[in-house]
Design a protein around this nucleic acid. Structure first.
Lengths: 358, 358
DNA sequence: CTCCCGCTGTTAATCGATTAACAGAGTGCC
DNA sequence: GGCACTCTGTTAATCGATTAACAGCGGGAG
C-alpha cells in the first residue's frame, strides 16, 4: 500500500536483480523459463503492472507515439471531414507500427492572440512525449513547428518546408485549374471564400492575404493566374472551415445586387454551405451561381459539387510512413490533384439587367 | 553537435546549477531577472528546447495527457459519428485543462484473436504516457481496462463498473422503450441488428449473446422485456458499427419470405444502412418495415430514423471532467435517454398472404 | 546591535527504468 | 584435458529532469 511497486521492489521480492526483472518483461528468452515465471508471478502478486511508461520512455528515448498538431479546437477538428480523413490515413499506417496518436491542440494563431495563450499552447507541445509529429497546413514559421524543430523531433508537414520533410499538393496549380474551368465557362466576376485562422463567425470582408493559411494563399494565387485582365476576384472569410463560416461569407457576398457569378471555396464544407445559402435565396446553383469546393470529401459527391480532388487519406498514410521510416522514404513528395466537375458549376449567366460592365 | 543539449549542459554553459536552469523554465519568479535572462539566452544559443518531456513526466509523475482506448481500428473510429461526438466532448473539456488526447488502438477482442495480438495491444496500453484514460463501451473484464487498472491510473468507463468511475445510460430501459414502441405499433416479429466485435463483413446469423458488447446485451434484454409472449426476436450481426455491416445483416434478414416486420438496430449507422437496404428491395420503410436506430446522431434526423437519443457529447465532457477532477465529481452518473419518433417506424403491416402464424 | 525574514541560488536525493559489459557454469569438440 | 561457446544472471552507469532543504546576504524592526 505504502509506496508504489516498482521494478526494484519486484526484484527484491523475487530475490533477483532489477535487470532480471526488466528482462522478464522485455526480453523473455534472455532468462531461463523458471526464473522468468517466478518473476512474473511475484510481479502479479505485488500488483506490478509492468515497467513505468515515462521511465521507459526516458531511458530508451522512444515514446511509441507521434503527435498531431491541430490548430483548431479539437471538438471542431472532429467535425472536419478533411481532418478526419487525414487522421484516418495517419492512424492506419501508425497502428501497423504499434504507435499511438497524440492529439495536441494549439490555440489558433490569430493576430489578437496573447503571448500567454501561445505560451500555454507551446507548453503542450513541449510536454508531449512523442517520437515525431505531423502538422497539417502549417509552415516552418508557425511557433508549434519551430518548437518541434527545436526539440529536434522528426517532423512532417503538408506545406513547403526547408527544414522538415513534407507531403504537398500543388495548391497553386489546383487553383489555376479551378480558375480556368470557371473562366472557360464565361465567369468574369468571382469571389473566393477562404477559411481564415480567425475566430469563427466574424466576417472578414476584405481579407488580409498575409494572414491566410499558406495553402489558401497559393490557391488564391492560382485562381488569379487564370483570370483574364478585367476579371474581378474578391476574397472573403467567415471564419474557420465550418458550415457556419460558409453561410456568413455567402450571405455577405450574395446580398446586394453586385454578387459574383462564381464562388470558389477553400473546402467542400465551405462550398456546400455557400451552395446551400445560395439555394435558400432562390439561386439555382450551377446556373445562376457556380460554386466550387476543394478536397472532394464524400459531402462533395452527395451535394454535386465541382471540386478539386486530393488524395487525403493517402496523404495521411504517407506522412505516417515518412515519420516511422525516415530512411526509406523521400523527403518531399507532391501528390496529384485533379478537377472533378459536377453540377455546381455551369456557364456564367447572361449579364443581369441594371448592371453594367465597364 | 555531439551529445544532445540537456538541462545540465545549459547549466554548465551558463555557470549556474541545474536547479537554476530548471527554475528559469518552470518558476521564473524564483530567480532574479538578470540570472533568468542569462540562462534563457544561453539556452537559446545552445538550441535547448526546454526540459525533456519524458524526463519531466517521470520526475513529476504527470503527463498532461489522457488516453482513449479505441477497440476498432482508428481509421474506422474516425468514421463513426458516435465516437466522433464523444471525442469532441472529451476534447472540449480536456483542452480547457491543457491536456492532450492519446488515441490508443486496441485490437478488437474477437474469439479468434491470438495471444500475440492481445499482448501487442496491451503493450501499447502500457507504454502510453498518460495520467488517466477513458474507455467507451468496455467493461472491467476487458484486458485493456484491467491493464489500466493495474497501472492504477484514474479510469472512466461508459459501462457499469465496480472498480472505475463510470458514466452510463440505462441501456436496458432504452431497449424496453424501443421494444414497447414497436409492440404498441403491433409488431410481433422483430429482429435486432447489433455491432459485434467481430471482423466486419462476416455475417453472424445467430449471435452468441455472451460475446456481445455489454451495451448491446442490455439493450437486447430491454427489447425482450417489452415483448409479449409469442413474439419473436432474432439477433443478427454483420460485423462492426459500419454501413457495410448493416447492409450484410439487412440482406440476410430481408431475404426469403420470413422477414421481420421491424428491425431494431444498435446504432443509427446500422439503422440507416438497414433502411437503405430495405428501400432498395422495394420496401417502404415505416410501412412495410419499421426500423429503429440508437444514439440520434445527425444522420438519424437526416434519414428520418426513429431512434433513442443519448447526450453523447455531454457524456464525453463528463468523462473528461471526472478524469481531470476526481474529487469534484461523482463516481457514477447515469445520463438520460429518450425515444425520438420519426418516420422510420409505423404500424405493423397486415399479415402477408402465404404466411401463417401458429 | 541583534534577530529574523525574504530573496536567490546551490546541493543532492530521487523519479523508474534499460542495457553494455562482465562473470560463472555447463557443454560440445578435438 | 583444454578451449571456445552458449546460457543466465548481475553490476553499475545512465537517461534528463524536479524540488525539498539549506545557506549566504542585505535590510528593516525592536
Amino acid at each position: 500500500m505504502g509506496s508504489r511497486v516498482t521494478l526494484r521492489s519486484v526484484a527484491e521480492a523475487a530475490g533477483v536483480s532489477t535487470a532480471a526483472v526488466s528482462y522478464a518483461f522485455n526480453r523473455p528468452q534472455r532468462l531461463s523459463a523458471e526464473v522468468r515465471t517466478r518473476i512474473l508471478a511475484v510481479a502479479r502478486d505485488l500488483g506490478y503492472a509492468g515497467p513505468n511508461a515515462a521511465a521507459r520512455s526516458l531511458r530508451t528515448g522512444r515514446a511509441n507515439a507521434v503527435g498531431v498538431i491541430l490548430t483548431t479546437e479539437l471538438a471542431y477538428a472532429f467535425r472536419d471531414p478533411y481532418v478526419l480523413d487525414l487522421l484516418g490515413g495517419l492512424a492506419e499506417t501508425l497502428a501497423a507500427g504499434r504507435t499511438s496518436l497524440v492529439l495536441i491542440p494549439f490555440a489558433p494563431v490569430v493576430a489578437g492572440l496573447t503571448d500567454v495563450q501561445v505560451r500555454e499552447s507551446l507548453d503542450a507541445v513541449h510536454r508531449a512525449v512523442i517520437d515525431g509529429a505531423v502538422a497539417d497546413g502549417l509552415t516552418d514559421a508557425h511557433p508549434a513547428v519551430r518548437a518541434l524543430a527545436d526539440r529536434s523531433l522528426p517532423l512532417v508537414l503538408s506545406a513547403e518546408s526547408s527544414a522538415a520533410r513534407c507531403v504537398l499538393i500543388d495548391d497553386r496549380q489546383a487553383g489555376r485549374t479551378v480558375g480556368r474551368h470557371l473562366v472557360d465557362l464565361g465567369h468574369r466576376d468571382l469571389a473566393m471564400v477562404v477559411a481564415a485562422p480567425d475566430p469563427p463567425g466574424r466576417l472578414v470582408p476584405t481579407v488580409d492575404e498575409a494572414t491566410l493559411y499558406p495553402y489558401s494563399r497559393n490557391r488564391l494565387a492560382g485562381v488569379r493566374d487564370a483570370l483574364p485582365p478585367g476579371a474581378r476576384l474578391r476574397v472573403v472569410s467567415g471564419g474557420g472551415n465550418a458550415t457556419g463560416s460558409g453561410h456568413t461569407a455567402a450571405a455577405a457576398l450574395l446580398a446586394g445586387g453586385d454578387r459574383p457569378t462564381a464562388i470558389v471555396a477553400d473546402s467542400d464544407v465551405l462550398a456546400a454551405a455557400v451552395a446551400h445559402t445560395a439555394a435558400e435565396r432562390g439561386l439555382r446553383v450551377g446556373h445562376d451561381l457556380s460554386v466550387t469546393g476543394f478536397d472532394d470529401v464524400p459531402l462533395a459527391a452527395a451535394v454535386g459539387l465541382t471540386t478539386v480532388r486530393q488524395p487525403i487519406a493517402e496523404k495521411g498514410r504517407l506522412m505516417a510512413r515518412m515519420l516511422l521510416d525516415p530512411a526509406g522514404t523521400p523527403n518531399r513528395v507532391t501528390l496529384p490533384t485533379h478537377l472533378v466537375v459536377r453540377s455546381s458549376t455551369g456557364p456564367a449567366p447572361a449579364r443581369r439587367a441594371g448592371r453594367t460592365l465597364t
